Lab assay of single mutants.
Amino acid sequence: RPRTRITDDQLRVLRQYFDINNSPSEEQIKEMADKSGLPQKVIKHWFRNTLFKERQ
């Protein structure tokens, strides 16, 4: 599967949610997917990777 490119607008949506809650529920992930147009799987990976980077 090719790598998903996240646009600036999509990144802005993800960052807004991450700043509020870095561990979103399934419902919140679905909401983000609707707003950003990204697949839920991509959003889950983005949150996991971003949380890991923040903790380092």
Rank of each mutant, 00 (worst) to 15 (best):
R1A: 01
R1F: 03
P2M: 15
P2S: 15
P2R: 15
R3D: 15
R3L: 12
R3E: 15
T4F: 15
R5E: 15
R5A: 10
R5H: 14
I6Q: 02
I6V: 09
I6M: 15
T7D: 12
T7K: 04
T7C: 03
D8W: 04
D8T: 12
D8G: 10
D8F: 06
D8L: 11
D8I: 08
D8N: 05
D9F: 12
Q10I: 02
Q10D: 04
Q10L: 02
L11M: 11
L11D: 06
L11T: 11
R12Q: 09
R12Y: 03
R12T: 06
V13K: 10
V13L: 14
L14D: 00
L14F: 10
R15Y: 08
R15S: 10
R15W: 08
R15T: 11
Q16F: 06
Y17S: 06
Y17A: 07
F18Q: 06
F18G: 05
F18K: 11
I20V: 09
I20K: 09
I20P: 13
I20W: 06
N21R: 08
N21T: 15
N21V: 07
N21D: 09
N22H: 15
N22I: 10
S23W: 05
S23Q: 12
S23G: 04
S23E: 08
S23P: 06
S23I: 02
S23N: 08
P24G: 01
P24D: 01
E26G: 06
E27V: 12
E27N: 08
E27Y: 09
Q28M: 07
Q28V: 10
Q28C: 03
Q28A: 11
I29Q: 05
I29V: 11
I29L: 14
K30W: 02
K30P: 01
E31M: 08
E31A: 07
M32L: 06
A33P: 00
A33K: 03
D34P: 01
D34A: 14
D34N: 14
D34H: 14
K35D: 04
S36R: 00
G37M: 03
G37A: 06
G37T: 03
G37I: 01
G37E: 07
L38P: 00
L38E: 01
L38F: 01
P39T: 11
P39C: 06
Q40Y: 14
Q40L: 14
Q40V: 11
K41D: 10
V42C: 14
V42L: 09
V42W: 08
I43Q: 00
I43V: 12
I43K: 00
K44S: 05
K44G: 08
K44T: 05
H45K: 15
H45A: 13
H45I: 09
H45P: 03
H45V: 13
W46K: 01
W46A: 01
F47N: 02
F47G: 01
R48H: 10
R48W: 04
R48V: 09
R48Q: 12
R48S: 08
N49A: 10
N49Q: 09
N49Y: 08
N49M: 09
N49G: 08
L51A: 11
L51C: 09
L51R: 12
F52R: 15
F52P: 10
K53M: 14
K53C: 04
K53N: 11
K53I: 08
K53T: 13
K53W: 04
E54M: 09
E54F: 10
E54T: 10
E54S: 08
R55Q: 10
Q56N: 08
